[in-house]
């Protein structure tokens, strides 16, 4: 019957297609992004951040970076608190991505100081050898368009001030993307909550152990040198040639970071590696 009547066939096919569509695509609008998942502290983007977001989209950063942390142990350890629906209510479009050629960026905000981003964006490989992220230094030559930015804020219905718009004239696309990156995932106070208080007494397990010092040196080159310099002479972070701290305090700084100062937490390396770093820094400190 339907095999002989094309119009009937088209109606039946549409009905088949619309069944699953209605239930899994239309019905969710009733519950998602309603009061139920609202988070008070999540704020819309400022004109500068939104400009940065649009650069992120234009350059297709989402082809290599995701922006959603799943509630899995290894993932929360690596990136931070898992993502909540209410954190994305101002994201048009969403930028969760589907491929992690580079790391997830959902919790990036506040992880590094601005200076780190300027340097990294301009030349990822001089900071992170082995990275395959393209150089984006040329973004700092591109000005922003305040009039277009105002129109965007109107369409998105985000609050803004004329001063914010006027300020854009003095900024470039690099400033915008760094401002955007610093907002990511930072509207909920997860970083403070994630700092583990270290329980038990902190005893250096490797005092004078040559292997541990060597391992620490290797870790330093990979994880610390981009900010504290190849020879601990200081760059984005302070010099580390003269450390006035006992082992336990040093351990705690490396483990928890200094979140207001731009020093990332390295607790996820595990206590063994953190101790190796402590021993390396102390060893060098002595000579």
């Amino acid at each position: 019957m339907w095999e002989k009547r094309p119009i009937l066939f088209l109606i039946l096919a549409t009905a088949a297609i619309m069944t699953g569509t209605t239930i899994t695509m239309i019905v969710p609008f009733l519950s998602v992004n309603t009061e139920a998942d609202r988070i008070e502290s999540v704020k819309p983007y400022t004109p500068l951040q939104q400009e940065g977001r649009d650069v992120y989209i234009r350059e297709g950063c989402n082809n290599c970076h995701t922006q959603t942390v799943r509630p899995l142990v290894s993932e929360v350890l690596r990136y931070g608190e898992y993502s909540k629906s209410g954190e994305f209510v101002y994201d048009r479009p969403f930028l969760w991505g589907s491929k992690r050629t580079g790391p997830d960026l959902a919790r990036l905000g506040g992880k590094y100081p601005d200076a780190w981003h300027y340097k990294h964006m301009a030349s990822p490989r001089t900071m992170i050898p082995g990275s395959n992220m393209p150089d984006y230094g040329w973004l700092s030559k591109n000005p922003l368009d305040p009039d277009l930015a105002r129109r965007k804020m109107k369409v998105l219905d985000f609050p803004y001030t004329e001063k914010q718009i006027a300020d854009l004239a003095t900024k470039n696309e690099m400033d915008a993307i760094v401002a955007y990156l610093q907002k990511l995932g930072n509207d909920i106070p997860w970083r403070k909550a994630a700092q583990t208080t270290i329980v038990g007494d902190l005893k250096n397990p490797f005092i004078g152990n040559k292997d541990a010092i060597e391992a620490g040196e290797h870790l330093y080159e990979n994880s610390c040198a981009p900010c504290h310099g190849e020879d601990r002479q200081g760059e984005i972070g302070p010099e580390l040639t003269d450390i006035d701290m006992d082992d336990a305090d040093l351990y705690e700084i490396i483990h928890n970071g200094i979140s207001d100062g731009g020093m990332p937490a390295f607790g996820s390396l595990g206590s063994e590696k953190v101790w190796q770093l402590v021993n390396y820094l102390k060893e060098k400190d002595d000579d």
Binding site: M25, F88, L156
Partner: peptide
């Protein structure tokens, strides 16, 4: 989507809704 210029528009869906529509 809502256009803001000839070359730029914003999805009318936001966040989780946008993700769900996109992968549908």
């Amino acid at each position: 989507e809502v256009p803001v210029s000839l070359f730029k528009s914003y999805s009318i869906y936001a966040g989780t809704n946008d993700a769900n529509v996109q992968w549908w």
